[in-house]
Design a protein around this nucleic acid. Structure first.
Lengths: 186, 186
DNA sequence: GACTTCCTGTAGCACTTGCTACATACCTGA
DNA sequence: TCAGGTATGTAGCAAGTGCTACAGGAAGTC
């Protein structure tokens, strides 16, 4: 739509490819065919640009979850979510960037801390909706969504590239743990 | 022992307090009562300093796990581990720094990627040992340790400061999921 | 034609980064 | 006594950081 929106999408592509932590305006601008001067002009500051990029990235990855077909059980839902994470480069990269942003916001630094809070709230809601579609009750869904999200992020953190088998094993363990018949209360 | 070791410990304190991501030599050196010049002299490069700091931090936090008394069940072990994480500032800060290093190493950047791999291997071994002390079989322990580690890291990532109750809820969910009687095979 | 508003290029500022060159001590062993 | 390794201070370099000042072009409005 606006020029700013175009820049946001292009900057998001760049950030997804090159990472968020070392991001600096001049190389980014060069790849977008513009200048740091223009980025500041359109966004006001680097922080606002970063916030826009994080929001765009989150929006992109949520679309993939929303598009998933329901699963037959909770455990199968966990495996299906993991498959979505790993099969789509886009989702994987968005998740990686989320992890970077979260790390940058660990000590409360802005705009990362606020962006992460906002993104996470939406993300949990998206996961919850998928779980509900898969038969999980509305009361249990958010809690389980949080557990799944935390575990997946942790897996991404520890095994960024290699060890795909080991990552899968962890997810499998979580899935089977969650799929056991519910004995206790909630 | 050597001057380098002293500097490593002091630099670790500083990094645990101020974070790893924005770490730069001059402010660090100022707080240690020395100069960037001297840090480079003793460590050779910033990368080697960072590697030393990460190793020191990991060693510190593992000591806390090694000191834990065995738990009565797997679920109780999970809760006890989480208690250790949250009750000791040292452990919490070490974990936070691990997360920062992992984020920095996400795209393979050194020395973070290598340090994380090494730290994680030792950390999983430490967790496994604790689980075995708590009655988990030696074959299952490493897998479960990976699952617990991933989940805890994910929780730290999403809820750095606030939401202690929600964090606890996630851990509780994991604990009860793992504590259900084993029906399937392994 | 004058005026405003949006957009963009050039140049630069003040600052920080990791790291180095150079000189100078100090202590130790021959 | 003197050589040699260890340690430290001063100064600086080349590169990069976010951001700004200033000027100007393009396009529409009165």
């Amino acid at each position: 739509m606006t020029k700013r929106d175009d820049l946001t999408e292009a900057a998001t592509d760049y950030a997804l490819a090159h990472g968020l932590i070392g991001l600096s305006l001049r190389p980014l601008a060069a790849e977008l065919g513009t200048s740091d001067r223009m980025l500041i002009y359109h966004f006001g500051s680097k922080d606002e640009l970063v916030a826009a990029v994080l929001e765009a990235s989150n929006t992109r990855s949520m679309a993939y979850i929303d598009a998933m077909a329901p699963a037959a059980s909770l455990g199968k839902a966990v495996l299906a979510l993991w498959a979505t994470y790993t099969e789509h480069d886009q989702v994987q990269r968005c998740q990686r960037m989320y992890v970077e942003a979260a790390a940058l916001g660990l000590l409360g630094r802005e705009p990362y801390a606020s962006s992460i809070r906002a993104s996470n709230a939406l993300w949990i809601r998206t996961l919850s909706a998928y779980l509900e579609r898969s038969g999980v009750t509305a009361t249990r869904a958010p809690g389980i969504a949080n557990l799944i999200d935390a575990t997946f992020n942790g897996v991404f953190l520890d095994r960024p590239l290699d060890d795909e088998a080991e990552s899968r094993q962890i997810v499998q363990d979580l899935a089977s743990a969650l799929d056991r018949p519910q004995l206790g209360n909630e």
